[in-house]
Design a protein around this nucleic acid. Sequence first.
DNA 1: GCGCCTCGTCGAAACGTTTCGACGACGTTA
DNA 2: TAACGTCGTCGAAACGTTTCGACGAGGCGC
Lengths: 379, 379
Amino acid sequence: MITICDVARHAGVATSTVSYVLTGKRPISAATRSRVLESIRVLGYHPHAGARGSATSRTNVVALAVPLREGVYVPVLMRMVTAAVTAARRHGLNVLLMTADQGVDGLRGVAGSAQADGFLVLDVEMNDERVPLLRQLAQPSVLIGQPATTAGLTCVDFDFEAAGAACVEHLADAGHRYIGFLGAPTPVYQRRTGFAHRAMVGFSAAAMRRGITSTIMPTAGDHHSVLKAVQALFRVHPSTTALVVHNEAALGWVGAGLRSLGRKVPEDVAVIAICPDGLAEQASPSFTSIRLPAEELGRRAVELLVAKLNGQTVPSLTLLEPELAERASTAGVPGRMLARRANPAVNPERVTAGRRPSRSGAGTRTLPPTPPVVPAPRT
Amino acid sequence: MITICDVARHAGVATSTVSYVLTGKRPISAATRSRVLESIRVLGYHPHAGARGSATSRTNVVALAVPLREGVYVPVLMRMVTAAVTAARRHGLNVLLMTADQGVDGLRGVAGSAQADGFLVLDVEMNDERVPLLRQLAQPSVLIGQPATTAGLTCVDFDFEAAGAACVEHLADAGHRYIGFLGAPTPVYQRRTGFAHRAMVGFSAAAMRRGITSTIMPTAGDHHSVLKAVQALFRVHPSTTALVVHNEAALGWVGAGLRSLGRKVPEDVAVIAICPDGLAEQASPSFTSIRLPAEELGRRAVELLVAKLNGQTVPSLTLLEPELAERASTAGVPGRMLARRANPAVNPERVTAGRRPSRSGAGTRTLPPTPPVVPAPRT
DNA sequence: GCGCCTCGTCGAAACGTTTCGACGACGTTA
DNA sequence: TAACGTCGTCGAAACGTTTCGACGAGGCGC
C-alpha cells in the first residue's frame, strides 16, 4: 500500500503539505501543489478511508435503513433508494445498506462503532421502534416518512393525507358520490405504516367532508386478491362510480377486475391512482394519478442529511405537495348523476356539480378506517 | 466518545488487554475478562470501526455493485440483495451499496481508498466493463452472473442455459412441437446480459436438438407489450402449443394475452416460467416453473467472498442446477399432436411421445438468436 | 531448590491520516 | 530600515485501534 508519506517523499515536501493539498484546508503555492499532484498521479495514491476516519471521526458514509417489510412495493422503494444513493454520491458520501434483519440493534451497532456519519430511514411506521433510538443517537438522521410525532426528528414525506383528499376532491368535483378506495395490503395497515395510514385517513376525511359515500378495501397485489377486492367493493356499493387506488402492485389488475364486473374505465368507473408517474402511464387506459415523487423524496432526504451534517438546522418536517396528472382513466362520462360533459379542463358546471351538499349530511363509511378489514368475499 | 483506553483505566488493565479480550487473539484469564467486559458494559463502549480499520486494514465492509439497468426486474434483484446483506451480517460484514451512476470509477474509488474488503457484483454482462478492473483489484470479488469468460474470477450463477434447455426438454417430452419463448426486454439482450443471453441460448440449442420449432420474442413488462408479443408469437406460428416465459414482469400478463387469442392455459397452451417460485405460484393458473434461486445466489456469493477473504481458494464458477416444479400451467392436454392423457406424473407414453424424431430433422428458428428482434406487430 | 516453560499481562510502537503551533521568507507600512 | 503581517511550509502530536516483544509469576520436572 502506498501512503501519504510516500507521496511526500516523492514530491520532496512534508506529509502535512500533501494533506493540505488534498483537503485544501490551508493555502498551498501553485508550484508545490502541482508537484504534489503529479506525485500522487505517478504513484497512484489513494487516501486510506479508514485512516482518515480514524483521524477525523468522519467516515463519509451514510447508512440507509430499508426494512423490506411484507406488502411494500419494492420497485417504488428502490426508486427512492437509488435516488438517495445518487444524491449521496454527489456529496461524496457512500451508502451503507441495512435491511430488515438488522433492526434497532443493527442501527445501534453501526452508530456506536461510528461506521456512518448519518442515517437515512425508510418505511417508517406511526410508532416506529427505531424512532426512540434515532432521537438519542450522536449522528444525525433523516426519516423518509412520518411517525406519529416528528418532534426532535427530521422527516421528509409526501403529503399522503393531502393526496388522499385530493383524489376525493377531484372525483367529487366531477360529480361522483360513491367512491371506493383500494388500499395497500392488510399487514401494511396493521403495522400502521405511515404512508398507507395517512393516505387512507386523508381520503376518508375528505369523503366525510364532501358527503361522499366511501368504501375502503385493502388488497394484496396479486391478480386474485385484486379481483376479489374489486368485486367486494362493488358488492358493498353497486353504485360506486370511481376508484382511488393506493397500491402500486394492484394497479395492473384493476382494469381486469372492473371488466370482470362488466364495467369499463373510464366510461363506467373513473380511476385515480396514487403512484409514481411511470406506473400510471403504462396502465391501459392510462390512469389519472396523484404523482408520488419517489426520487425526489430520496434526493431531498439526502440533502437534508447533508445540511445537518454541516451543522445547519433544518425543518423537522418537509412535506411534498401532491400534484394531480389527468389522464385517460377519468376522461369518461361517469354517468348517472352527472350534469357534466366532455372537456374536463374548462368546466363551468364543476362547482355546482361538485359542491352540492350531500343528502345525508355526512358521508357513510362502510368500513372503519383503522384497521380496515377485508369483508370476506364469497368464494 | 469513549475509547478503549477509558475501558482499560476503568478496569485497571492495559489497553492491550482490553483489545485481547475483544479480539480473543491471546488468552486472558476469566477473572480479567469478566472485569473488562463489565467495564465495557458500564461505560457503553463500542470499538471505533475507522480506527480498527486503520490498524488492521480490514473494514468489515463488502461493496455490492447493483447497476439497476433498464429492463431488469427489480424485485428479483432485490431478493438477491437482501439475501446477500443478511448473509453478510451473519459474518459480521456490512454492505456498501453502489448503484448505476458509480460504475467502474466508483468501484475503483472504493477499492483504492480501501472502503471495502471485497466486492459483490450483480447484473453481469457478457463483456462487462467492470471485469478487467476486478481482475486487477487488490480486494477479492465475486460475481453473481457470468461474463464471457470466468478465468481469474469467481462467479456464482444459476445455470440459465440448462434452465432454458430443461424447459424445452420437459415440453418436448410432453409432445409439444411448436414452442414460443417470451424473453426479457430487448435492451437486456442488446447489452448481452449474461442471464438472459444464456437462457435463450440454452432454449434455442435444446429446441434444435429436439427438432422443435421455436420462436423467440423479447418483450417489455407492461400489459400492452406482452399482449403484442404473445399475439406476434402466435401469428408467426399459430400451431404453437407451449410457451416458455423468461420475464418476471411479463408473467402476470401472459394469461391475458393468450385469452385475447381465445387460448387457455393449460388446455390450449402449456406455460413454463423461469422465475422465483413465489411468482410462479401466484399466477393464475399457477405456472410450472424452473425455480430461480435468487436468495441462494446472494447467499452463496457472500459465502464465496468470505472464503476468499479468509485466504481459501474457491472454484472460479459455481453453477446452481435448475429444478423444475410442476404446477397447473402444464397440467392440461396440449391437444393436437399428443398421445398422452392426464396423470402427468406416471406417464408410460412419455418417451415414445416425446422422443419421436422431428419431421424436418433440425428445428427451424423463426428469429436469429442474437440479438433477437421483435417483428413489428400490426397495430 | 534450581532452571525452565507456559500463562497472563503490560508497554510501546505501529497503522495512515489530520491538525495545530511554529517558523522562516517576503512584502508592506511607518 | 525596523516592525509587522501574511503566506507557505514543516515537524510533531494527535485519532483509537492492533500487535509485537518482553516480562513477572507461578507450576513443573530434575
